[in-house]
Design a protein around this nucleic acid. Structure first.
Lengths: 233, 233
DNA sequence: GGCTCCTTTGATACATTCTTGATATGCGGT
DNA sequence: ACCGCATATCAAGAATGTATCAAAGGAGCC
């Protein structure tokens, strides 16, 4: 218990609950990081990557489900949701958004600790050395997944939500060809009756913003008759 | 939903609960394996390794906690415990024994399904890190199926959709002779009225791009009067 | 309500790929 | 060597796929 235990990010706005968690975790050897809201949580998580996140859904500044999704955009850290909401739909939404467990208040400390051990057990296996970089870089291009910020040669590039989603999708599958259908499904949702024309319009827009010479794309290359590919370097 | 879904081992002795689970899971595309007791569960799990175990703690022939430990001696399959016992100690013991989640009765189907998805998500991630990339190699030629990229001596070779399809077809049947008819059927679809002339035109094009000396093909060899064959080495 | 920004849709010019026909080359048997 | 057939190569038009611009519709914000 003298060594540095796992680092836990506690996201909770009620001071009482926070005190309780602080005391419970500290006495079991965990190191703590505390955030009172979603924005602070996201900032802290990217600045000091924790081993586990305890997330209260009832935050003052943002939806907890959305915060879960935001975290999942760039990290696989175990997320244990704590909430007063007992509705089944809330649980399903949180779990499907990327949470690993859902605990309803009131709960016992021992159950919390046991569920934390389960989460850390999973992480220990999966994250051995594969902790995903929160930043993707290729040539002059840089995508900060945690901050949702894209820069080209140091200058910030403003992207609309769809453009960003598209670029991240391409970058995370760098090297692989993504078909028009795959892209439509991932970006516009599975039930979209959209045409491949959409993809073209957005690719053109992305190239204008992200490529040094849009007419001679370095990264976003088209594979005729198939789809597109992100080329690194 | 037509494909084979994940295989779930349901360990439950109450017939009513079992019927309920069977109906719920089957309608969501899961394949089922059922056991009424601990002994049968252990036997089935080793005979047909499931993707997930749903384990009721109240079994007639053995303790559920113990069953969890027995399973954990040789498998990391996700174990989702279902129990009527609400005591915190029971939860802690089950989780520490190796269970991945603990759900108390009564519970909603949707929560169960969501927690199953979480468990399968964890398992899937741990496993696919070891999956080898499907790459075909022969001599200087290299076909990366995942990236949809062909290289000859390290240099990328650009292929049109039909050329790529043709090359993959040949490579995947390396050594075997493919008749003109087979090739036409596979590449242009079964209802094609195309002539064998097509195949010739494309073979010539492929050789130009893929062979070091198109006039003396090393890989794409023609079998007079029959068809073509991919020769390795 | 009027503003801005984003998304969707349509129109059009441009590029690649496919198909087709014409013609040359190779191969086996006599 | 010659013939007949199968195969290879070339090139042009047709078909299909792609890039780009611009304007119409929507959503959210003072």
């Amino acid at each position: 218990m003298s060594e540095a235990g796992p680092l836990v990010l506690v996201v909770e706005d009620e001071p009482q609950m926070r005190r309780f968690l602080r005391a419970s975790l500290a006495s079991h050897g965990y190191r703590l990081l505390e955030a009172g809201g979603a924005a602070e949580a996201l900032r802290l998580a990217s600045a000091h990557p924790p081993d586990l996140v305890l997330l209260d859904l009832g935050l003052p500044d943002a939806d907890g489900i959305d915060t879960t999704r935001r975290l999942r955009e760039w990290t696989r850290v175990p997320i244990l949701v704590i909430s007063a909401r007992q509705r089944e739909d809330d649980k399903v939404m949180a779990l499907d958004a990327g949470a690993d467990d859902y605990l309803t208040k009131p709960f016992g400390v021992n159950e919390l600790l046991a569920r934390m051990r389960v989460a850390l057990r999973h992480a220990g296996r999966a994250l051995d050395g594969t902790a995903a970089e929160p930043v993707f870089e290729s040539g002059e291009l840089r995508i900060d997944l945690a901050r949702r910020e894209v820069t080209r040669g140091g200058a910030v590039v403003h992207l609309t939500p769809i453009e960003y989603k598209l670029l991240v999708l391409l970058a995370q599958n760098a090297g692989k060809v993504l078909t028009h259908q795959q892209i439509l499904r991932e970006v516009w949702g599975p039930g979209s009756t959209r045409q491949t024309h959409y993809v073209r319009v957005y690719m053109a827009e992305l190239r204008k913003k992200v490529e040094a010479d849009p007419a001679r794309p370095r990264h976003i290359v088209t594979e005729q008759g198939v789809g597109y590919r992100f080329r690194e370097g």
